[in-house]
Computed example of a mutant assay.
Amino acid sequence: MEAVVADDSGFIRSVVSDILSKDGIEVIAQARNGEEAVEKVIEHRPDVVTMDVEMPERNGIEAVDDIMDEEPTPVVMFSSHTVEGSERTLEALEKGAVDFVSKPRGDGPGITAVEDEITRKVREGARASPQTVKDIQPSVEDEGVDASEAVVVVGASTGGPGVVESVLKGLPSTTGIRVAVVQHMPEVFTRRLAERLDERTDLNVYEASDGDVLEPGECAVAPGDGHLLFKNHYKGSTPMAVDNKTEVNNVMPAIDVTLRSAARYVEEDAYAVVLTGMGSDGARGADRLKRKGGTVIAQNEETCAVYGIPGSVVEDGNADEILPPEKIPNEILRQIGGEA
């Protein structure tokens, strides 16, 4: 496996290159800025790129955009764990980056604290198919459906934020639908994701807190430091809880936790949408939901950056429909309206 490492800090380039080399990943080139990064990718055609967000001359977001146009290659971003860093990272993911690593503050030895995460995400990223979501335009044909009794759980991981946004754009708040989003992403990043989804979709989107009640026309995003659960389900509202005791499937938030909770309290009024992502988080929850009469929709392999999560659900035989993102919203509304 061959990689290009792009960062304006020579120290970070050296440390990241050493980390990758120790794991058997050959760093075939380094770049000091976004312009060099694009040139090195075109010249060497690596399997994967690590890309700092903030760089001179041409930043990481602009570089990702150019790479996707010139030589589509999986890119793993390096971002600061701040509100501004989360915003810039989400922009890079929208442009086609497949994943990101949140860098410790400063250029000190703290970078070694995320050594395992770096090698894991670079190896996983190299197997991903870089995707941009600018061409995903969901159509809405069933705005008159009364979806006020339904709860839709949308789960995603690698490559997920833009696809989640495209699905939510096709779900009008006028239907009364209620949505819970579980995106594998750390705190601060989930808060900014909720803000972006609120700005860009018709739903009232917010990061969930313990004790919130999910009302019709709303979407709750699981916080990056907790699991989102339902406490009950009755006409017009669904109270929620946030559990941050321990990771499940080595992640927090976990899709499985929310789906198991939906199976228990929402039952046949629950709809699961499993989207692109590494691993199999969500497979057990989808199985439980199906047994309780719920409906499961999986993203198709051709449009996934990584087919792990939806693929595991499909392999278990628990997907009622397998669709590209632009067709998922109408399918949800058709299922709810009893027309499917």
Rank of each mutant, 00 (worst) to 15 (best):
R192T: 08
E2A: 01
E35R: 06
A147N: 07
T303S: 15
E187N: 05
A222I: 00
D135F: 11
S280G: 04
D69I: 08
K121P: 00
A270F: 05
H227Q: 01
R105L: 07
V205N: 02
C219P: 04
I328N: 15
D52S: 04
T112L: 15
E57I: 07
K169T: 03
L323P: 11
V257H: 04
F189L: 09
I28Q: 12
L259G: 07
T174F: 03
A194S: 07
A31S: 09
Y307S: 12
A97N: 01
R178M: 03
P310K: 04
H81N: 06
M68W: 00
T132H: 11
E207C: 13
T303M: 11
P324D: 08
V257P: 01
G338P: 13
R334V: 05
A319H: 10
S80D: 08
R120L: 15
A220Q: 07
T190Y: 01
K292I: 06
L229M: 12
M278G: 02
T238M: 05
R291S: 08
E141W: 06
S79L: 06
E218T: 11
E315A: 14
H227F: 02
E267L: 09
E326Y: 11
V38N: 05
D107W: 01
L20C: 06
V257T: 12
D256F: 07
D18E: 15
T174G: 09
S86V: 02
D287Q: 13
D142K: 14
S166N: 10
D287G: 12
G337S: 05
G106R: 07
D198Y: 06
N33R: 01
A97I: 04
G224M: 06
G160V: 00
I255F: 05
Y234R: 14
D287S: 15
I332V: 14
A340D: 13
D18Q: 15
S157W: 01
S139G: 04
E315N: 13
L93R: 04
A319E: 10
M68T: 05
V4H: 03
E2G: 14
R105V: 01
L203N: 08
V273K: 10
G277M: 04
